[in-house]
Design a binder for these strands. Structure first.
Lengths: 188, 188
DNA sequence: ACCTGAACACCGTTCAAGT
DNA sequence: ACCTGAACACCGTTCAAGT
């Protein structure tokens, strides 16, 4: 079903991609939907709630993308998952930044989307441990380490702060692979 | 010297800490300095340049904090450095978020501050390699891995997305220590 | 339940003018 | 060189009113 609410979220993403966070305006969102300048208030408490809905939907979409592929070995599936995350952030930096933006309240919908993304990674880490590609240890914690590295690497890369000097130039995915190597050696 | 420009940056940080990014307003910054509502335009091109000045100053201050301590062994000094970074971000989330916010132009001052922070970490990684606490390998790249993990861990923690489930609960510093352990085992 | 139009208080930015 | 005051175009939000 394509509700007016969904359309408002669509237009918000459109504006976000076009002109960055500053371009997302309740009034313009209303106008692009052919409604009055404050029609959005019939569907969202305020601007922050619209932005939270955008963030939750995009993060959930990302979490479910490419999760159907059942690649072997599991460590490769895990690498593909983190590669998808990094490519998503690189391709849609404004959406990525919004997703982890500063919220003045807690948004359950967004928290659930984040958990959904986390659960997928924990499952892949678990499988990689069973196949012997990753050492034993609490999967939740190891997944957090993998996610933190991928997330931080791509965030620093977007800011242009990921060692732009010539030697030892690092890509976000390259750093994740470095982490996998370090973890794998630890198991031997 | 305490120039008017410095005072404007001070007030901007004050507003940022008080009410988040939305509270930082050129007009209010002017007012709090006892000037007219658009006096800031005599010192900054536009709002973004003021924010970039704030970000650059805060990041540089962070990079230089606790860099004088000469702790042994070097791996401990490196851990202290990352701990300082994590505590800074946790204590001043709005400054941290602003520092890595989305800029429409490149700000050399900010880039230099980031490089300054990076150089410190590269030096500590190098020392830890020489003392045998970290395995050999390009120091720039290993430093990028360490920084990415710390940065991503604290960013996820601020968003409340760092495995808030009971078991395997991870703190940003705990994840950095996990990384050190994985790297150290690799050297043997 | 959803929408409109006027209204209020605010903001970024520009401009003519002052010292 | 630095500052002021008026002005313009915009925005988030509220409210009375319509269907």
């Amino acid at each position: 079903v394509r509700t007016t609410r969904d359309q408002l979220v669509d237009v918000a993403v459109e504006l976000l991609d076009e002109g960055g966070p500053a371009a997302v305006t309740l009034r313009e969102v209303g106008r692009r939907c052919g409604l009055s300048h404050n029609a959005p208030y019939r569907h969202f408490e305020d601007k922050e709630e619209l932005l939270a809905a955008v963030a939750a939907r995009e993060l959930r979409k990302q979490a479910r993308a490419e999760s159907g592929r059942d690649v072997r070995p599991p460590i490769t599936a895990l690498r593909h998952r983190m590669d998808a995350y990094i490519r998503w952030a690189t391709r849609h930096p404004a959406r990525f930044k919004l997703t982890f933006g500063p919220w003045s309240r807690a948004w359950p919908e967004l928290g659930e989307a984040a958990q959904e993304a986390r659960v997928v990674v924990v499952g892949l880490v678990n499988a990689a441990q069973e196949s012997g590609d990753l050492p034993p240890g609490e999967p939740e914690r190891m997944a957090a380490l993998v996610l933190a590295t991928a997330h931080g690497a791509v965030d620093l890369a977007l800011a242009g702060h990921l060692s732009p000097s010539g030697r030892g130039k690092a890509s976000p995915l390259g750093l994740v692979e470095d982490l996998f190597r370090a973890l794998a050696k630890g198991k031997a």
